[in-house]
Nucleic acid binder design. Structure first.
Lengths: 318, 318
DNA sequence: ACGTGTGCCGCTCATATGAGCGGGTCCCTG
DNA sequence: CAGGGACCCGCTCATATGAGCGGCACACGT
């Protein structure tokens, strides 16, 4: 693997050839010609140069996206998209900002006029839309009700409206909470004209950005907003993650329960039908939730930060 | 030249492909297959990755030889050999030691059983032979007389004898000074049997290691050993370098003069007939001398240190 | 001296690759 | 709305390249 070549002249020759080939981009035949060697000899020297470590190839770029980690994450988990932002930041708000920017850039890039965009309510999604500056003209569909929290200004509606305005496309939005006290209320809400209209568009959504929470206190806005009993019940059913209102267990299997009926949001089946579903998780506490979400196949795009990406890869390799 | 790609997804895709291609060594066709792209698209992305600087290729190795500089020196001046030792050392003795080692390794590598080795007297050559540990069995021919200096132990004779013993081949050596007071003495010396014998072997020498001095006080052992008048006369003739007794001007043209006749050493014509002539110059004061020596075509191999190598390249590029 | 193993070389032939072309699309601009 | 112009794509076809083979020289043990 690493047996550096023989004499110094050999070494210099190999380096010259490597330079001609890799830096100057000449063909091996040309090089062979120039150095009066057979092209085979040139090829062998180049092989040796690479395997001995004389030629090192690095992939990097000036931005804050860790391309190598992104690629590995994408490949390892079979994702359609993966963006890993390389930042030492660990303050959640600042992190959200950075990931939001990366996600916004991603969305700008991948959304084309043929798409229908779905947006769920989540702080990370808000962070994204806030930094969105350009978007193809597409319909924007609200995928979930909103939760009002003292520390958050925007709600799901504003998020959708803002994005649709930016895009120039129609908005399908409604005013409703993400979770209500009982199934009956939920059913009634779902029959409201605006809600029903939005829901009727769920199956034409082609790209969506969703929230992703770990099913534990402080790790999921939905968890924190729900009553203790319901949370406990879902935990007993093996729920480890909520994907904008869709509950999944550690194996990524969606969990149906009475609680599910109280949620005003896209369901597992509908989400599964969406071509690309992107989540923006951060924080090491979410490792298991992300694994579950990815395993479920519901989420096939990730925008995250390097520590979480590394943790995911580590967890995968054991 | 450096317009980094478009969106982040594009970037990650390009990085993935670059990794597959450069790191994993897969073919473009395989990659195209894997990513569902045309091989042309893959090729274009890879081109872009290289030209945008996303993929960086470096050539380096753990030793103290600067391969890149060596290669550039070799190419720029059309040399057969160039070894640039990367060292911050500037103490002449320590430098000689390092260059001597590099030159010794080089000699071990390039001298084969078919060669005839010629050695001139010079401190740097002594530094080389002292560190020579292995050499093909070849005849070793003394190319110059010796100068005895208080700070030097070995002389040309010892140098040749030692090398021949190491090699196992015959030695053609003689006892004579490098320079004598008048041409008549020189002529007489050249007819001495041992001297004549060595000289008769000059034209079969295939590889030689010579000294290289700048024609100024303290920059050439020969200069320092000669009378003021002679030095001055040669300087007036435009001499800037002495190559083990061969004087050349700034354009690399050998300078004949009455002084030349007083030197017991190989002459320009004979040196020119040698396939490889290697010098081991060091110190920035020798830039012009090295340029002249290389331009003359008499010297076609260099073992030197990085500052001098850089200075040579700089001088060439202006 | 004589196998014999090892390393290096250059070959053939199937495959990968590059240069350059022409046909699209989108976006200006007149 | 027509006419460029600036891409971006995938094609053809000549060329470059890789896999694997047999020949050759050298080193070594018997």
């Amino acid at each position: 693997m690493e047996p550096i070549a023989g004499g110094p002249a050999q070494l210099v020759l190999t380096a010259s050839i490597a330079r001609r080939y890799y830096v100057d981009g000449r063909s091996k035949v040309e090089i062979a010609d120039e150095f009066r060697l057979s092209r085979f000899k040139v090829a062998r020297l180049l092989d040796q140069a690479r395997s001995s470590g004389l030629v090192r190839i690095e992939i990097s770029h000036p931005g804050n996206v860790d391309l190598d980690l992104s690629a590995r994450l994408q490949e390892t988990f079979g994702l359609r998209r993966a963006i890993v932002v390389d930042t030492p930041e660990d303050d959640p708000a600042a992190l959200r900002l950075q990931l939001g920017k990366a996600a916004a850039d991603l969305l700008t890039e991948i959304v084309t006029a043929d798409d229908v965009l779905g947006l769920a309510w989540a702080r990370a999604v808000t962070a994204m839309t806030d930094q969105l500056t350009s978007l193809a003209t597409v319909p924007v569909v609200q995928l979930t009700g909103a939760l009002t929290r003292p520390d958050v200004e925007a709600n799901s509606v504003e998020l959708v409206r803002h994005t649709a305005r930016l895009s120039g496309g129609p908005a399908y939005l409604f005013y409703a909470p993400l979770v209500v006290p009982d199934a009956t209320t939920a059913r009634a809400l779902r029959q409201q004209p605006e809600v029903a209209d939005a829901i009727s568009h769920f199956d034409v959504v082609t790209k969506a950005v969703v929230g992703l929470g770990s099913w534990a206190a402080g790790q999921s806005t939905l968890y924190d907003a729900m009553d203790e009993t319901a949370c406990e019940q879902l935990r007993k059913r093996g729920v480890v993650a909520d994907i904008s209102g869709v509950f999944v267990d550690a194996n990524g299997v969606p969990v149906q329960s009475k609680v599910t009926d109280r949620v005003i949001a896209i369901n597992a089946e509908q989400m599964n039908a969406i071509d690309e579903v992107i989540a923006i998780p951060y924080g090491l506490a979410k490792v298991d939730a992300v694994r579950a979400a990815v395993r479920s196949g519901l989420v096939n795009g990730l925008v995250t930060h390097s520590p979480l990406a590394r943790a995911l890869l580590d967890a995968h390799n054991e």
